[in-house]
Amino acid sequence: GSPLAQQIKNIHSFIHQAKAAGRMDEVRTLQENLHQLMHEYFQQ
């Protein structure tokens, strides 16, 4: 897949890990990143 698709997959797993660790501030930051990446992805 594209590097962007790979990045989106990575962030999904980072979010999963951050949630499991209870780091909600990190989850929020990652979700904002994910949102931006998704936006770029669909602009392609």
Rank of each mutant, 00 (worst) to 15 (best):
G1M: 13
G1D: 12
G1T: 12
S2I: 14
S2D: 12
S2G: 11
S2C: 14
S2A: 12
S2R: 06
P3K: 12
P3L: 13
P3R: 08
P3H: 13
A5P: 06
A5T: 08
A5W: 15
Q6M: 09
Q6Y: 05
Q6T: 10
Q6S: 06
Q6G: 05
Q7D: 04
Q7E: 08
Q7P: 01
Q7G: 02
Q7M: 11
Q7L: 13
Q7N: 04
I8H: 00
I8K: 00
I8Y: 02
K9Q: 10
K9P: 01
N10A: 14
N10R: 13
N10E: 14
N10V: 11
N10M: 14
N10Y: 08
I11R: 00
I11S: 01
I11L: 15
I11G: 00
I11V: 07
I11Y: 06
H12R: 14
H12L: 15
H12Q: 14
S13I: 15
S13L: 14
S13C: 10
S13E: 14
F14C: 05
F14H: 12
F14R: 15
F14V: 07
F14G: 06
I15T: 00
I15P: 00
I15R: 00
I15V: 02
I15W: 02
I15S: 00
I15K: 01
I15L: 08
H16A: 15
H16Q: 15
H16C: 09
H16L: 13
H16D: 13
Q17D: 09
Q17F: 05
A18G: 01
A18I: 03
A18C: 04
A18L: 09
A18D: 01
A18R: 01
A18H: 03
K19R: 12
A20W: 05
A20T: 08
A20P: 01
A20M: 11
A21C: 09
A21Y: 02
A21H: 05
A21S: 06
G22V: 02
G22S: 03
G22E: 04
R23Q: 06
R23I: 03
R23A: 07
R23C: 04
M24V: 08
M24N: 06
M24A: 08
M24L: 13
M24C: 09
D25K: 04
D25P: 02
D25H: 05
D25N: 05
D25R: 03
D25G: 03
E26Y: 05
E26C: 04
E26Q: 06
E26T: 05
E26N: 02
V27T: 02
V27N: 01
V27K: 01
V27F: 04
R28G: 05
R28N: 06
R28Y: 09
R28F: 07
R28W: 07
R28A: 13
T29E: 12
T29N: 08
T29W: 11
L30Q: 02
L30T: 00
L30M: 03
L30N: 01
L30A: 05
L30I: 01
Q31R: 11
Q31W: 12
Q31D: 03
Q31M: 15
Q31E: 12
E32T: 06
E32F: 08
E32K: 11
E32G: 06
E32V: 07
E32C: 02
E32P: 00
N33A: 15
N33K: 15
N33L: 15
N33T: 15
N33D: 08
L34Q: 00
L34E: 00
L34P: 00
H35R: 15
H35W: 14
H35Q: 13
H35L: 14
H35N: 11
Q36D: 07
Q36G: 04
Q36R: 12
L37Q: 01
L37D: 00
L37S: 01
L37I: 06
L37R: 02
L37H: 01
L37W: 02
L37V: 04
L37Y: 02
L37A: 03
M38A: 03
M38I: 12
M38H: 03
M38N: 02
M38Q: 04
M38C: 08
M38K: 03
M38G: 01
M38T: 03
H39C: 06
H39P: 01
H39K: 15
H39Q: 14
E40L: 13
E40R: 07
E40M: 12
E40S: 07
E40Y: 07
Y41K: 03
Y41V: 05
Y41D: 02
Y41W: 13
Y41F: 10
Y41S: 04
F42E: 07
F42L: 10
F42V: 06
F42S: 08
F42Q: 08
F42G: 06
Q43S: 11
Q43R: 08
Q44T: 12
Q44C: 13
Q44I: 11
Q44Y: 11
Q44P: 06
Q44A: 11
Q44V: 09
Q44H: 11
